[in-house]
Protein backbone atom coordinates (compact mmCIF):
# COMPACT_ATOMS: atom_id res chain seq x y z
CA UNK A 1 0.00 0.00 0.00
CA UNK A 2 1.34 3.40 -0.86
CA UNK A 3 0.68 6.54 1.12
CA UNK A 4 -1.44 9.05 -0.70
CA UNK A 5 0.42 12.32 -1.21
CA UNK A 6 0.10 15.05 1.40
CA UNK A 7 -2.73 17.45 0.70
CA UNK A 8 -1.19 20.90 0.63
CA UNK A 9 -3.11 24.15 0.96
CA UNK A 10 -1.39 27.39 -0.02
CA UNK A 11 -3.47 30.06 1.67
CA UNK A 12 -2.86 33.70 0.89
CA UNK A 13 -4.37 35.88 3.60
CA UNK A 14 -4.77 39.59 4.14
CA UNK A 15 -6.74 42.51 2.88
CA UNK A 16 -6.05 43.65 -0.67
CA UNK A 17 -7.46 47.10 0.10
CA UNK A 18 -4.58 48.12 2.35
CA UNK A 19 -1.48 48.07 0.16
CA UNK A 20 0.94 45.46 1.52
CA UNK A 21 -1.78 43.93 3.70
CA UNK A 22 -2.55 42.15 0.46
CA UNK A 23 0.92 40.64 -0.06
CA UNK A 24 -0.29 37.12 0.78
CA UNK A 25 -3.37 37.21 -1.40
CA UNK A 26 -1.40 38.67 -4.32
CA UNK A 27 1.27 36.00 -4.04
CA UNK A 28 -1.33 33.21 -3.95
CA UNK A 29 -3.14 34.67 -6.94
CA UNK A 30 0.07 34.98 -8.92
CA UNK A 31 1.11 31.41 -8.11
CA UNK A 32 -2.28 30.17 -9.31
CA UNK A 33 -2.00 32.26 -12.46
CA UNK A 34 1.57 31.37 -13.41
CA UNK A 35 2.01 27.76 -12.30
CA UNK A 36 0.58 24.33 -12.96
CA UNK A 37 0.51 22.50 -9.66
CA UNK A 38 0.08 18.82 -8.86
CA UNK A 39 -3.38 17.61 -7.84
CA UNK A 40 -2.54 17.48 -4.15
CA UNK A 41 -1.93 21.23 -4.07
CA UNK A 42 -4.71 23.82 -3.66
CA UNK A 43 -4.06 27.54 -3.86
CA UNK A 44 -6.62 29.76 -2.17
CA UNK A 45 -7.28 33.42 -1.58
CA UNK A 46 -8.31 33.42 2.07
CA UNK A 47 -8.82 37.15 2.46
CA UNK A 48 -9.58 37.89 6.09
CA UNK A 49 -12.22 35.23 6.42
CA UNK A 50 -11.06 33.77 9.73
CA UNK A 51 -13.24 30.90 10.89
CA UNK A 52 -14.75 30.65 7.41
CA UNK A 53 -11.44 29.07 6.47
CA UNK A 54 -11.75 26.19 8.93
CA UNK A 55 -13.20 23.79 6.39
CA UNK A 56 -10.41 24.07 3.82
CA UNK A 57 -7.77 24.25 6.57
CA UNK A 58 -9.02 21.10 8.26
CA UNK A 59 -9.13 19.37 4.90
CA UNK A 60 -5.39 19.61 4.34
CA UNK A 61 -2.31 17.92 5.82
CA UNK A 62 0.00 20.87 5.41
CA UNK A 63 -1.06 24.48 5.51
CA UNK A 64 1.25 27.04 3.93
CA UNK A 65 0.08 30.52 4.89
CA UNK A 66 1.35 33.48 2.91
CA UNK A 67 0.91 36.71 4.83
CA UNK A 68 2.35 40.06 5.80
CA UNK A 69 4.41 39.57 8.96
CA UNK A 70 5.78 42.21 11.33
CA UNK A 71 9.14 40.93 12.45
CA UNK A 72 11.48 43.90 13.00
CA UNK A 73 13.25 43.37 9.69
CA UNK A 74 13.66 45.72 6.72
CA UNK A 75 10.56 46.00 4.53
CA UNK A 76 10.70 43.17 2.04
CA UNK A 77 12.40 40.76 4.48
CA UNK A 78 10.95 37.31 4.14
CA UNK A 79 10.35 35.08 7.15
CA UNK A 80 9.49 31.50 7.79
CA UNK A 81 7.43 30.73 10.88
CA UNK A 82 6.26 27.31 11.90
CA UNK A 83 3.06 26.52 13.75
CA UNK A 84 5.13 26.20 16.92
CA UNK A 85 6.32 29.83 16.64
CA UNK A 86 2.72 30.92 16.42
CA UNK A 87 1.75 28.84 19.41
CA UNK A 88 4.55 30.35 21.49
CA UNK A 89 3.79 33.88 20.54
CA UNK A 90 0.21 33.29 21.49
CA UNK A 91 0.89 31.72 24.85
CA UNK A 92 3.11 34.52 26.08
CA UNK A 93 1.65 37.51 24.50
CA UNK A 94 -0.75 39.69 26.36
CA UNK A 95 -1.76 41.90 23.48
CA UNK A 96 -4.71 41.07 21.29
CA UNK A 97 -2.84 42.14 18.22
CA UNK A 98 -2.82 38.54 17.10
CA UNK A 99 -5.53 38.06 14.64
CA UNK A 100 -8.27 35.80 13.56
CA UNK A 101 -5.92 33.47 11.68
CA UNK A 102 -4.32 32.39 14.93
CA UNK A 103 -7.73 32.01 16.54
CA UNK A 104 -8.85 29.97 13.58
CA UNK A 105 -5.93 27.57 13.94
CA UNK A 106 -6.72 27.16 17.63
CA UNK A 107 -10.33 26.45 16.80
CA UNK A 108 -9.21 23.81 14.29
CA UNK A 109 -7.13 22.29 17.07
CA UNK A 110 -10.02 22.31 19.55
CA UNK A 111 -12.25 20.65 16.99
CA UNK A 112 -9.56 18.04 16.57
CA UNK A 113 -7.82 18.47 13.24
CA UNK A 114 -5.14 21.06 13.05
CA UNK A 115 -2.79 20.48 10.14
CA UNK A 116 0.91 21.22 10.26
CA UNK A 117 1.34 24.85 9.41
CA UNK A 118 4.14 26.96 8.06
CA UNK A 119 3.92 30.67 7.42
CA UNK A 120 5.91 32.37 4.72
CA UNK A 121 5.63 36.06 5.35
CA UNK A 122 7.03 39.34 4.17
CA UNK A 123 7.74 42.45 6.19
CA UNK A 124 5.38 45.04 4.71
CA UNK A 125 6.53 48.48 3.60
CA UNK A 126 3.11 50.07 4.07
CA UNK A 127 0.08 48.23 5.40
CA UNK A 128 -2.00 51.21 6.46
CA UNK A 129 -2.70 53.15 3.29
CA UNK A 130 -6.03 52.36 1.72
CA UNK A 131 -4.87 51.42 -1.72
CA UNK A 132 -5.32 48.51 -4.11
CA UNK A 133 -1.96 47.11 -5.09
CA UNK A 134 1.21 46.30 -3.18
CA UNK A 135 4.14 48.68 -2.73
CA UNK A 136 7.16 48.85 -5.04
CA UNK A 137 9.27 47.30 -2.29
CA UNK A 138 6.92 44.34 -1.99
CA UNK A 139 6.65 44.01 -5.76
CA UNK A 140 10.40 43.76 -5.98
CA UNK A 141 10.39 40.87 -3.52
CA UNK A 142 7.29 39.08 -4.76
CA UNK A 143 9.12 36.63 -6.98
CA UNK A 144 11.37 35.66 -4.09
CA UNK A 145 8.33 35.26 -1.83
CA UNK A 146 6.65 33.00 -4.37
CA UNK A 147 9.87 31.04 -4.69
CA UNK A 148 9.98 30.29 -0.97
CA UNK A 149 6.35 29.23 -1.00
CA UNK A 150 6.90 26.88 -3.93
CA UNK A 151 9.98 25.50 -2.19
CA UNK A 152 7.73 24.49 0.72
CA UNK A 153 5.28 22.95 -1.71
CA UNK A 154 7.98 20.84 -3.33
CA UNK A 155 9.51 19.88 0.03
CA UNK A 156 6.12 18.54 1.11
CA UNK A 157 5.70 16.43 -2.00
CA UNK A 158 3.92 18.75 -4.37
CA UNK A 159 5.19 19.72 -7.76
CA UNK A 160 4.93 22.83 -9.87
CA UNK A 161 5.88 24.01 -13.32
CA UNK A 162 5.51 27.30 -15.11
CA UNK A 163 2.47 27.46 -17.35
CA UNK A 164 3.23 27.81 -21.04
CA UNK A 165 0.35 30.23 -21.54
CA UNK A 166 -0.67 31.87 -18.28
CA UNK A 167 -3.97 33.72 -18.32
CA UNK A 168 -3.64 37.48 -18.42
CA UNK A 169 -3.96 39.46 -15.20
CA UNK A 170 -7.50 40.57 -14.58
CA UNK A 171 -8.14 44.24 -14.05
CA UNK A 172 -8.97 43.75 -10.42
CA UNK A 173 -5.60 42.04 -9.83
CA UNK A 174 -3.46 44.23 -12.03
CA UNK A 175 -1.66 45.93 -9.17
CA UNK A 176 -0.30 42.59 -7.90
CA UNK A 177 2.05 41.89 -10.75
Amino acid sequence: MTDSPKRILVLGVGNILFTDEGIGVCAADEIARLYDLSDNVTVMDGGTLGTRLMDPIMGCDLLIVVDAVLGDGEPGSIYRLTGEDLRKSLAFKDSMHQTDLVDTLIMCEIVGTRPDAVIIGMEPFDYHTLNVGISEVAKGRQEALMGFVLEEVVKAGGSCSLKANPSPITQEREPCA
Partner: peptide, 22 residues
Protein backbone atom coordinates in the same frame (compact mmCIF):
# COMPACT_ATOMS: atom_id res chain seq x y z
CA UNK B 1 -18.14 43.60 12.81
CA UNK B 2 -15.16 41.69 14.19
CA UNK B 3 -12.88 41.03 11.32
CA UNK B 4 -12.91 44.19 9.29
CA UNK B 5 -9.79 45.73 8.03
CA UNK B 6 -6.31 44.60 8.65
CA UNK B 7 -4.89 41.18 9.10
CA UNK B 8 -1.19 41.70 9.45
CA UNK B 9 0.46 39.00 11.51
CA UNK B 10 2.51 40.44 14.35
CA UNK B 11 5.41 38.18 15.17
CA UNK B 12 7.22 40.70 17.38
CA UNK B 13 6.67 38.83 20.60
CA UNK B 14 9.75 39.76 22.57
CA UNK B 15 11.17 36.67 24.22
CA UNK B 16 9.78 34.21 21.73
CA UNK B 17 10.57 35.78 18.39
CA UNK B 18 12.60 32.82 17.21
CA UNK B 19 11.44 32.48 13.67
CA UNK B 20 13.77 32.11 10.79
CA UNK B 21 14.62 34.86 8.37
CA UNK B 22 14.95 33.57 4.83
Amino acid sequence: CIACGVHVLDAKTGQTASFKVL
